[in-house]
Structure formats: C-alpha cells, structure tokens
C-alpha cells in the first residue's frame, strides 16, 4: 500500500503537521512518498521520495498549480491514498485533487478502526465510518488526531517536481493575527465564556468568576465573532493555544477547534447544560447545569 503525503509550507517554513501524516501512514501500514511546495533547505525527516516543487515559482498559495503538482506526483507514484492535514491548506486543496481524479474524499479522519476511517459529525457529538468506494482516495486528517511515537527519522530522496501553467487565484501576501492585549499563554487560571452564556450582558458574570478565582477571561469564537469579548481572549486554532493549571469552560460545546486550544490544560472544569456536549471528553469535571445559575452562585461562595 502506498500513501502520498502532502506537506505544508507557510511563511518560509515547513509545517510540523507532516509528521502527523507520517504517523497516519504508519497506522495503516502504507509506504510513503511526499509532496512539498517549499525549498530544499526545509525538507521533512522522512523516508521515500520527496517531490519538491520550488515555492519561489509556485507560491505558497496557488491552489490550481499545487493541484497540478500533486496530480503529477500521483501519476508517478500511483498511491492508494493521497493524505492531507485537515488544515486551511488541506481542506482548500484536497477536494480539487479528488474532483480532478473523480475519487472519494474522506474528510477530517479522527481514527483508524480495523482499516476503516472514523470521522466526527454533528459538531463532534457523533461519529461515522466513511468508506471510499474508489480504488484511490483522498483523506484529510484532523489536526492532532495522529502523532508519531519517537522522533522523525530519515532523509528523503529529493526529486524536482514541475508543471506548466498559471493558476486562477492570486496570492497577495499574509496579514498578521490581531495584536494580543492579553497573553492568555501566561495565565494559570482561565475561565472562558461560550455561546451558552446567552448574551453580551452576561459576560460580566463570567468575568466575575474569573476574577474570584484569580484568573483571566477567555472565550470561544462565536462570543468573539458576536463582539461580546475581544479577539485577544479567543482560545482555539484561530485564537490562542493555552495550557493553564485550571481551565473552566462555561457554556462551551467543545468543538475540535476550541479543544485544540485548551485540551492541554492541567485540570478542566466544564459547565454545560448538555450532558452529551463533547467538552465532556476532555473535562476532568463536567457540571451539568445552567451556567447563568451556577456561575454567580459559585462566585459568591468563593468570595466568602
């Protein structure tokens, strides 16, 4: 079995998520070849062939050209699986490759069970097994779902990859993330507000609990998007990654993008009225309650 792994490169650097793809290939027992639009000074430690296309020529984001490059590697390697991270690069590019080859795509695989791919659904509350019916298939992997045991090793055989053509999306450059006015990374205690808090007027109740515990206020994304709390407080893949001693999630369902930012916290307390909320999977204590009743009562008790 052969897996073609698609590495990522951003802002002049190889991304580490290639090692998650290698771990996945190991799990399904596949030999690997790798594609990278990058540079020769930044190649992953791995075995097999590395198809290297020059980023100076093909840009860090040019989905049409990157697709053509991957298709060129596919025709050389004839892989059973073409594997991406389910990242902003992967979910943008994977369906283009799958559609060109008219093959199945299984998105955001979280686990391999007896050779089958398990994916999440319904905001991570449920799971499904999705089986490709085509001989080849495209697979994207949930960030953090697969990890290597031990250090990555090996030196790939580098083969230059080139295709002709232009592309239809122009990449104009990056814009940095909004400046942080709070560095949640340093906080020992974080109390975060999620959509379950209900409305902007209720945020002070959560902020008061944070204060009573001597911690900082964090937030999930909808709370930030709605303008209840500033972006610098957002925890998750598109916010900050935190690992405090105590994390209290108030009215937060526990979507993967939120969990990715806080699951390494030492101790997690979740307050949620839904006993099945996926936050329960990472919580040391799940308190099933209306947060707007529980949080003020807890704050009052702590103040005494």
């Amino acid at each position: 079995m052969k897996a073609l792994l698609i590495a990522e490169y951003r802002d002049g650097k190889l991304l580490e998520n290639i090692y998650e793809l290698i771990a996945f290939a190991g799990k399904i027992g596949a030999d690997t070849a790798t594609v990278l639009v990058g540079d020769a000074a930044n190649v992953p430690r791995c075995s097999g062939t590395l198809y290297l296309a020059d980023v100076a020529k093909y840009s860090e984001y040019n989905p049409e050209l990157h697709k053509q490059l991957i298709l060129a590697a596919v025709s050389k390697e004839n892989p059973d699986y073409i594997v991406f991270s389910h990242s902003s690069y992967g979910w943008d590019l994977a369906p283009r490759v799958a559609a060109s080859l008219k093959i199945a795509q299984v998105s955001e695989v979280v686990k391999v069970i007896d050779g089958n791919f398990e994916v999440g659904c319904c905001n991570a509350k449920m799971r499904r097994i999705v089986k490709p019916s085509t001989a080849k298939s495209v697979v994207t992997l949930q960030a953090g779902a697969f990890s290597m045991e031990g250090e990555p090793q090996g030196t790939p055989t580098v083969v230059a990859l080139d295709v002709a053509g232009g592309g239809n999306v122009e990449f104009l450059g990056y814009e940095p993330a909004e400046a942080k006015d709070v560095d949640l990374g340093k906080a020992e205690i974080i109390v975060s507000a999620g959509r379950g808090v209900g409305k902007k007027d209720n945020i002070p109740v959560i902020a008061a609990l944070a204060k009573a515990l001597g911690g900082e206020l964090g937030a999930s994304r909808p709370v930030v998007d709605a303008g209840w709390v500033e972006h610098s407080h957002q925890v998750g893949t598109t916010g900050q990654t935190v690992s405090p001693k105590l994390y209290v999630a108030c009215g937060i369902s526990g979507a993967i993008q939120h969990l990715a930012g806080m699951k390494k916290s030492d101790f997690i307390i979740a307050i949620n009225k839904d006993k099945d909320a996926p936050i329960g999977e990472v919580a040391d204590v799940l308190v099933v309650a209306d947060v707007m009743q529980l949080a003020p009562a807890l704050t009052e008790k702590l103040r005494k």
């Binding site: 902003s88 122009e170 990449f171 990056y174 957002q234 598109t238």
Partner: peptide, 9 residues
C-alpha cells in the same frame, strides 16, 4: 489560517 493569520487572495 491557523493562529488567526490571514492570507490575502
């Protein structure tokens, strides 16, 4: 993109 960085296209 991840980390809140944006790519202008």
């Amino acid at each position: 993109l991840e980390g809140g960085i944006k790519s202008v296209v």
